[in-house]
Amino acid sequence: MSIRDIFRKNQKKKYATIPTEKAKNDVPEGIMVKCPECRKNVFTKDLMKNFKVCPTCDHHMKMTAWERVDTFLDEDSFESMDDHLETVNPLNFPSYTEKIKADSQKSGLNEAVLTGLGKLDGQQVALAIMDSHFRMGSMGSVVGEKITRAVEKATELGIPFIIFTASGGARMQEGVLSLMQMAKTSVALRRHSDHGLLYISILTHPTTGGVSASFASVGDINIAEPKALIGFAGRRVIEQTVREKLPEDFQTAEFLLNHGQLDAIIHRKEMREKVASIVHLHTTKEVTKW
């Protein structure tokens, strides 16, 4: 036995400890949440009252689709659509079906977008809300189909279409079918627009890839939440391609506003009121006599 063995630090561990999610958070799950930005702990109850915006650093945390419905629309006005559509595995991608099932159970959604009709300050709107907790909000056939049907419903009823985007882009596991959803949603939006109807795109963190390169960017009004990451190609990809360091605010909502891509950045707490006001400005259009 050498002298090194006296010190416990040098002794080999006989087992490994895997820190659980719970231990990482340091507090029992559900009571407190750690802000991913400033690392301060917030009571979940306070956070929910604050629209999931960190009271310390104003960071807008990710919301689930249903949390959006609750904070954005008139109470009990929302009726979801097309919850019966099921994702298949067209390319027979290994474990794709299982992953969808798992996310579906976790989120209570059939896919990465929730669509339906609801009322915003008394005004009827068609709504689509993407949920980044479901496969990073990526767009496969079902997401594309649900959004398209919601747009068509809006066209049929002659009402505005509003979308909250949150997506990593097209879903790799469905290959070119995912790519074509960009075109499918676009043709539906074109028809909606040709009817003189309003489309508001609200870009939330993150909105990238095929989603930012299709319906997210072509609203009559493009709005983003503060600091949201919005872009086409990922930062790392660009840095490696151009071999230069990108600015700190690259691909943030603020960066986009300065570069002409957004109409406005609106704080989550004011989102409902401001969007309702925009919708109102577009529904009184029948009055043309002065």
Binding site: G260, A264, K274, S277, I278
Partner: peptide
């Protein structure tokens, strides 16, 4: 409501 940007 002020709207910004040329989208270009």
């Amino acid at each position: 409501i002020e709207l910004h940007g040329d989208r270009l």
